[in-house]
Lab assay of single mutants.
Amino acid sequence: DYYQTLGLARGASDEEIKRAYRRQALRYHPDKNKEPGAEEKFKEIAEAYDVLSDPRKREIFD
């Protein structure tokens, strides 16, 4: 679930989605986080943001 990936509730505003993405992206960015799995988590976060930030894709997902 993309909302869960970003730590959001369904119905989150565009601003909340953007804030959550930035927070998670900084936390799991491969240059900042060298833990195994961080790069994969970063890709999941980017995919979630891509879907939720686009109104058309978000409507299909919801």
Rank of each mutant, 00 (worst) to 15 (best):
Ala20Leu: 00
Gly7Leu: 07
Glu59Asn: 02
Ile17Gly: 00
Leu8Asn: 01
Ile17Trp: 00
Glu47His: 07
Glu40Leu: 15
Gln4Cys: 14
Tyr28Pro: 02
Lys32Cys: 03
Ile45His: 02
Val51Pro: 01
Arg27Glu: 14
His29Asp: 06
Ile17Tyr: 00
Leu26His: 13
Asp31Gly: 13
Lys41Arg: 12
Ala9His: 08
Lys34Ser: 07
Asp31Phe: 06
Ala38His: 06
Pro36Val: 13
Ile45Cys: 12
Ala25Tyr: 14
Tyr21Val: 02
Pro30Val: 11
Pro30Gly: 14
Lys18Leu: 13
Lys18Cys: 11
Tyr2Asn: 04
Asp1Pro: 01
Lys32Pro: 04
Arg56Val: 12
Asp62Thr: 07
Lys32Glu: 05
Arg10Gln: 14
Ala12Trp: 00
Glu47Asn: 05
Asp31Met: 12
Ala48Ile: 00
Arg27His: 10
Gln24Tyr: 12
Leu52Trp: 00
Leu8Gly: 01
Asp31Ser: 15
Ala20Asn: 09
Glu40Trp: 12
Asp31Pro: 05
Arg23His: 15
Tyr2Ala: 05
Tyr2His: 14
Pro30Glu: 11
Gln24Leu: 10
Leu52Asn: 02
Tyr49Glu: 03
Leu52Cys: 01
Glu35His: 14
Glu16Gln: 15
Ala9Arg: 09
Arg23Cys: 15
Leu52Arg: 01
Ala12Ser: 11
Tyr3Glu: 01
Ile17Lys: 00
Ala9Phe: 04
Asp1Ile: 02
Asp31Leu: 12
Glu47Lys: 12
Leu6Arg: 00
Lys32His: 01
Leu8Glu: 03
Asn33Thr: 15
Ile45Lys: 05
Leu26Val: 12
Arg58Trp: 00
Glu44Gly: 12
Gln24Thr: 06
Lys43Trp: 08
Lys34Met: 03
Glu35Arg: 09
Lys57Gly: 05
Asp31Ile: 07
Asn33Lys: 10
Lys57Met: 03
Ala48Glu: 01
Lys41Asn: 07
Asp54Glu: 06
Ala9Cys: 07
His29Tyr: 08
Ser13Arg: 09
Thr5Cys: 11
Ala48Leu: 00
Pro55Lys: 14
Tyr21Ile: 01
Glu40Lys: 15
Glu35Gln: 10
Val51Leu: 09
Tyr21Arg: 04
Glu40His: 11
Arg22Cys: 07
Glu16Leu: 05
Lys43Arg: 00
Glu40Arg: 15
Pro30Met: 14
Asp54Leu: 02
Asp14Cys: 14
Leu6Glu: 02
Arg27Thr: 13
Ala46Thr: 15
Phe42Arg: 08
Ala46Phe: 04
Lys34Glu: 15
Tyr49Val: 06
Ser13Tyr: 01
Asp1Thr: 07
Leu52Glu: 01
Lys34Ile: 05
Leu6Trp: 00
Arg22Ile: 14
Gln4Asn: 14
Glu15Arg: 06
Ala9Thr: 06
Glu15Gln: 07
Asp1Cys: 06
Gln4Ile: 09
Arg58Met: 03
Ala20Thr: 04
Asp14Glu: 11
Leu8Arg: 00
Ser13Lys: 08
Ile17Asp: 01
Glu40Cys: 12
Ser53Asn: 04
Leu26Gln: 15
Asp50Arg: 10
Gln4Pro: 02
Gly11Pro: 04
Ser13Gln: 10
Glu35Leu: 11
Glu40Ser: 13
Lys34Tyr: 06
Ala38Thr: 12
His29Asn: 14
Tyr21Gly: 03
Asp50Lys: 12
Lys34Gly: 05
Asn33Gln: 11
Asp62Trp: 04
Asp54Ser: 11
Asp62Met: 09
Asp14Leu: 14
Tyr49Cys: 04
Lys41Ser: 07
Glu59Trp: 02
Gly7Glu: 15
Asp50Gly: 11
Ser53His: 07
Glu16Asn: 06
Tyr49Gly: 08
Ala9Gln: 11
Gly7Phe: 02
Glu16Tyr: 00
Leu26Trp: 11
Phe61Ala: 04
Asp50Ile: 07
Arg22Phe: 07
Ser53Tyr: 03
Arg56Phe: 12
Pro55Gly: 07
Ala38Arg: 08
Thr5Gly: 03
Ser13Leu: 05
His29Lys: 01
Leu6Met: 03
Ala48Asp: 00
Tyr2Leu: 05
Glu44Met: 08
Phe42Thr: 05
Tyr2Cys: 09
Gln4Tyr: 14
Arg27Ile: 13
Ile60Gln: 15
Leu8Pro: 01
Asp54Met: 04
Arg10Ile: 07
Glu44Lys: 03
Ser13Glu: 07
Lys34Pro: 05
Arg10Cys: 06
Leu8Ile: 14
Asp14Pro: 08
Lys43Ile: 10
Glu35Pro: 04
Ile45Ser: 04
Arg56Ser: 13
Glu39Lys: 15
Tyr49His: 13
Tyr21Asn: 03
Tyr49Thr: 05
Ala9Leu: 08
Ala12Gln: 02
Glu44Phe: 06
Tyr2Ile: 03
Lys18Thr: 12
Lys18Val: 12
Ala25Ile: 15
Pro36Arg: 14
Tyr3Gly: 00
Gln24Asn: 10
Gly37Leu: 08
Ala25Pro: 00
Leu26Lys: 10
Arg58Pro: 04
Ile60Pro: 15
Asp54Pro: 01
Lys32Val: 04
Gly11Asp: 07
Asp31His: 13
Tyr28Trp: 08
His29Glu: 14
Tyr28Gly: 05
Arg27Met: 15
Tyr21Asp: 02
Gln24Ala: 09
Ile17Leu: 09
